[in-house]
Design a protein around this nucleic acid. Structure first.
Length: 856
RNA sequence: GGGAGCGUGGCGGAAUUGGCAGACGCAGCGGACUUAAAAUCCGCCGCCUUCGGGCUUGUGGGUUCGAGUCCCACCGCUCCUACCA
């Protein structure tokens, strides 16, 4: 018998597959397509267990799909721009490309050792000018469509990375990459107008039935659609008098979802960053106090903001506004709890109905006017018919944010108040009639800030001309190449690199400066999945027909950390390119699998500082890639956390050895010691028919499990088949097995079936058995996936549990096709002793499972 | 504060979605083979028991013939998000 030796067979098959193009995409065209994609990695260095799990899932699905008769696209590439390469270059006084490409080579070699079936001819590397050129092209097309904007606003600045960040890249006030605190700065930056697509990005989440709910929920929360109204408050002059003949410029607009509470507005607040604020307070007695508050809140970092107890700070500006609903004059405060870049940066404060306003009112002793109450509130009977202001402040513990009945609210008194309530509706209508309000939808989503003040990224194709302004680089001049002769260690940047920055204006031919910001790396990853469909196209980012043939990605696999970032940006890019006429679908990823983290055996995150990092390469060297793959699949559901233990790996290695011997024995090739045990009895339990039944049952189970990404239970089912096969083999000497009725056909079929089902999981193991022991034609990976006959999977007799009042008291064996009466009777007979003297109330028969007898 | 999810043996995890809880495996224990070990093979393996049984899916209640699964309350843990008016 041939022993299982992974360290010998794995490199051998990898070489053969590479030479004969086994993993090349075959565009048959007559077959349905399947696009299996795993998120491309950042070339950070050696691969880790997270890569192994992510890419193993993808590889199993890709190989399975091919055996199931699909044309499969299963590519791999690298998200190769980014800061770590730049930092490494500074440290080693070399160039980021050197570090990046060295790491890509390392990782690619590891992926090949894992036996992943990528078509390497389709490799996409984001820092390759032939790729980033088309990223620039897309940028120009978006610019033409008005989706690119340069604007000045407060932005997140990471001092450690020396660059600005997008909103999505600030996690709890810290930089997503270096985890250091982020500051706010006022800068002019480039934006993609993703907010133009906010509504569609939200609506189309409904189409994504193959996505985990939590991811969709996170995206919906991030987009944060909010229905409400704009309300205009008239700003009084500096003496506190309402202008006699106000123009539209005299009004300050707020956004609110609770227009119904307008009668409870007792003050008005603007954010410290509110643009007109300095002018509003100029010359007022409180001017200095307001300016101090502005300065103080600018110093508060995002981290402090993010922390628990946020004390609210505010100052009265000295100005007043007029509430349009009741013409009441209320004071204008400035406070740091108002967010500058949401809505208008100004809010009406209703302490009775909003907890934040309530806390602020308490702190600064501002009136809390009760205008919405629950029925049964002690105040309710007193105020329910009161239209005017009887109670002007209350001493509550908290604001009343729930639905309630409006009181002291003029004509709206008695209406139901709350979000989307009849009260809110009525007030908005009144505001619309007087022209001082209108329905409005706000989104939490902000435009995507894409410029980065770093070298190792895709250059933004724009030119600053003193006469023509900001001008796009003409398409024919693409790509704008990164200069290779840059001394990052000496502090050189694109802005100081004269060879790069100096240029001529494409419009007027005059001397001009090139834009020296590069694009966020997330722009590269927002469309790479399209490039794989046509990776060598040098006249377009991709051919639309090819992209439309392969896309959308049928199964996308990656980490949950991209729930918002990459997945939202990619959805945005897809929709933009659809609107450009390049694509004919709305969403890029039909099914999404978010894999759980791989932790150490104690459930701890693996990290260098803890010294608990498990090296995939060491595991491969010890047990072979197939055992590593199978172990990863068997550890649990892919979307859950997995605890890696080497014991599990050793156990899986033993199983692969055992299954190897079983396959050899099934086809009579176990020449040394067979599994035959002369003392074992050849009973009905291990006859060929039982084996055949198990084979059909298990194929059905494994097929369904892989289709639902339940790799762990699928592999468990193969283990069950192995156990039944062992029983069969143990009790039958080889000659008998072959000669009993259909014995030879059945054992051969079981052997082939096992090898084929294992092929996606352990590709080298299966290929070796296929080509040597089974002497099969071609590659096992080109064989059709085994089919199964549900009829053959059925047993002749089945055992049913017999319950008495829901407790199992016995079991009966009946013919599989027994009718209900027969089953009932058999069950009653079984527990007759226990029901003696009792009345049978009911007998419930659950076919194929149990009988429950209700008696008392 | 808001949102999502989870809680099953010593451990990882199963349970056809309301139908025999603990599949499959790891660890452990016992046995066979061996001079011995490794490897391999076989068996046992939730808890209690007076050996009749009884109890058991975080806790308490409910719906049901029947609940790990559905509903309510509580306890505990994880992730996301964060003053979004």
């Amino acid at each position: 018998m041939k022993p299982y030796n992974p360290l010998e067979i794995e490199p051998r098959w990898q070489k053969i597959w590479a030479e004969n193009g086994q993993d090349k995409v075959r565009e048959d065209g007559s077959k349905p397509k399947k696009y299996v994609l795993e998120m491309f990695p950042y070339p950070s260095g050696d691969i880790h267990m997270g890569h192994v799990s992510n890419y193993t899932y993808g590889d199993v699905l890709a190989r399975f799909a091919r055996m199931k008769g699909f044309d499969v696209l299963h590519p791999m590439g690298w998200d190769a721009f980014g800061l770590p390469a730049e930092n490494a270059a500074i440290k080693h006084k070399s160039h980021p490309a050197k570090w990046t490409y060295a790491n890509i080579d390392t990782q690619q070699a590891s992926f090949q050792r894992m036996g992943f079936s990528y078509d390497w001819d389709r490799k996409v590397v984001a820092c390759d000018p032939e790729y980033y050129r088309w990223g620039q092209w897309i940028f120009l097309k978006m610019w033409e469509r008005g989706l690119v904007e340069r604007r000045n606003s407060p932005v997140n600045w990471c001092p450690d990375c020396g660059t600005v960040l997008a909103n999505e890249q600030v996690i709890e006030g810290c930089c997503w990459r270096c985890h250091n605190e982020v500051e706010k700065r006022d800068l002019t930056q480039w934006y993609f107008k993703i907010t133009d697509y906010a509504q569609e990005l939200l609506d189309d989440l409904d189409q994504l039935t193959g996505w985990p709910d939590r991811v969709k929920q996170q995206q919906a929360n991030w987009i944060g659609r909010s229905e409400g109204a704009e309300v205009e408050f008239l700003l009084c002059d500096k003496d506190g008098n309402a202008p006699a003949n106000p123009t539209d410029d005299d009004y300050i607009t707020v956004f609110t979802t609770r227009a119904d509470t307008l009668f409870g507005c007792s003050f008005f607040v603007v954010a410290p960053e509110y643009k007109p604020l300095p002018e509003m307070v100029a010359g007022m007695p409180n001017e200095q106090a307001v300016l101090d508050l502005i300065a103080a809140s600018a110093k508060v970092t995002a981290v402090e903001r993010a922390q628990g107890d946020r004390e609210k700070h505010g100052v009265f500006t000295g100005r007043y506004v007029v509430n349009p609903i009741n013409n009441e004059k209320v004071p204008v405060w400035v406070a740091d709890y108002v967010v500058a870049d949401y809505g208008t940066g100004a809010v009406m404060a209703v302490p009775c109905g909003d907890q934040r306003d309530f806390e602020f009112a308490k702190k600064y002793d501002l009136p809390i006017i009760p205008i919405i109450l629950e029925e049964g509130d002690p105040l309710f009977d007193q105020l329910k018919d009161e239209q005017g202001r009887v109670v002007t402040s209350v001493d509550w513990e908290a604001a009343m944010e729930a639905q309630g009945i409006l009181v002291q609210s003029g004509p709206y008194t008695g209406l139901v108040g709350g979000k989307h309530s009849e009260g809110e509706d009525a007030v908005v209508k009144a505001l619309e009639d007087m022209g001082r309000g209108r329905r409005k939808v706000e989104f939490r989503l902000r435009d995507w800030l894409i410029s980065r003040q770093r070298y190792w990224g895709n250059p933004i194709p724009a030119i600053h001309c003193p006469t023509c302004g900001v001008v796009p680089v003409p398409e024919e001049d693409l790509p704008v190449r990164l200069p290779e002769d840059i001394d990052l260690a000496a502090g050189e940047t694109l802005a100081t690199h004269e060879g790069f920055a100096k240029c001529t204006c494409p419009k007027c031919g005059g001397e001009a400066r090139r834009e020296t910001d590069t694009m966020d790396t997330f722009t590269c990853s927002s469309w790479y999945y399209l490039r794989y469909t046509d990776p060598h196209n040098d006249t377009a980012p991709f051919d639309s027909a090819r992209a439309n043939r392969w896309m959308p990605v049928d199964q996308y696999i990656g980490g949950i950390e991209h729930a918002i970032l990459h997945l939202l940006y990619s959805r945005f890019f897809t929709k933009v390119m659809r609107d450009m006429g390049l694509l004919d679908f709305d969403e890029p990823f039909t099914n999404l699998l978010c894999q759980g983290m791989v932790l150490d055996a104690n459930g701890e995150v693996m990290s260098k500082s803890k010294g608990n990092v498990v090296s995939p390469e060491e595991m491969i060297a010890a047990y072979g890639a197939d055992a590593v793959r199978a172990t990863m699949l068997f550890m649990g559901p892919p979307d859950k956390e997995k605890l890696w233990s080497e014991d599990g790996l050793a156990g899986m290695f033993k199983f692969l050895n055992r299954l190897w011997r079983i396959v050899c024995d099934l086809v009579g090739k176990a020449d040394e010691k067979t599994l035959f045990d002369p003392s074992a009895e050849a009973t009905d339990k291990n006859n060929a028919k039982v084996l055949q039944r198990e084979r059909h049952r298990v194929v059905g189970k494994v097929t369904a499990d892989i289709e639902r990404n339940n790799f762990n239970t699928g592999l468990a089912a193969i283990m069950e088949l192995a156990n039944v096969t062992s029983d069969f083999l143990r009790a039958r000497p080889a000659d008998h097995r072959m000669n009993c009725e259909n014995g030879k056909a059945i054992t051969r079929d079981v052997a082939e079936t096992i090898v084929k089902m294992m092929a996606p999981i352990v590709p080298h193991w299966a290929e070796e058995l296929w080509s040597t022991v089974l002497e099969g034609e071609g590659s096992v990976h080109d064989q059709p996936w085994p089919t199964f006959d549900p009829e053959l999977a059925k047993a002749d007799e089945i055992e049913l549990a017999v319950q008495l009042n829901g407790k199992v008291k016995g079991r009966v064996t009946v013919a599989a096709d027994a009718d209900e009466e027969t089953i009932k009777q058999a069950a009653l007979d079984e527990v007759a002793a226990l029901t003696d003297g009792k009345t049978i109330r009911k007998v419930i028969v659950v076919k194929g499972r149990l009988v429950n007898i209700v008696a008392n």
